[in-house]
Amino acid sequence: MNRHVFHKNLNTVLIYAFLIIIGFTTIFPLLWMLATSLKDPYADVSKLTSIVPSKCHWDNYRAVFVETNFLREFCNSVFVTFTITAGKVFTSSIAAYAFARMIFWGRNHIFLGYIATMMIPHSVTMIPTFLLLQKLGWIDTYYALILPEMFTAYGTFMLRQFFLNLPRDLEEAAMIDGCNSWQIYCNVIIPLSRNALITLAILIFMGSWKNFMWPLIVIHSAELYTLPVALAKFKEMYGIQWPLLMAGSVIMILPMFIVFIAGQRFFIKGITLGAVKG
């Protein structure tokens, strides 16, 4: 009996040790980034022996915002990301609603087409899309950043699967009460799918906030740079001033961190939705 208890405790200790080691490996580089961003950019700051900055140079963050175009780029990123997130969630949720609850000519074929295109690499569509936008004269505008990102086959697919599993009683009751399709969408479908919608919105937000390649391709003027492109250029300019560079990185990461913490409750559950079923 004692031996059993001992084994159980030993197991628990080993599991905690494992978790702490992995957790430390994960979080140490991030903490180091944070610490570096607070060090004096003009002193020899990068020694491992001085992990914690002796004095916090919050001034680095001010410098990043004031001495470069960072504020503008931050606002660009916020504007582009929020527009894309709202647009994508809206277009894919109404399309998924049509696929899941309505009957129309060609529905199954179109849906199959959506699924089939989900595996097409971005490199294939990227070149023609660039040429198309160039023809329209939209290269180096917000249109080029936003419009091609306004729809998602994946999101439509995920939401359709979710909508199909919603109980129909409420909708039928709403129909009997004389609600039209838009009222049913707003008052029945949306409230019932809150988790799925929030999960999708977080995924889109993260993807769009991090997106580096597309803005790099379609944007040439500095005043339209989004944060990732700005940071990459920043590295070319301030390559050796690590504290400033790390401050910029922290600023880029912080919004994703906040969104994740705020939506975590829905997100951790939602992310496995529609991916694997037992």
């Binding site: 609603y97 309505m102 129309f104 529905r107 295109t117 294939v124 091609p148 729809f151 086959a153 439509t156």
Partner: peptide, 20 residues
């Protein structure tokens, strides 16, 4: 149904199907 589908479908046509 097509009204609901249209925005998404137009995006799908212009930025996936036709580009391919």
């Amino acid at each position: 149904a097509w009204l609901y589908l249209a925005p998404n479908f137009l995006g799908f046509l212009s930025f996936t199907f036709i580009p391919v």
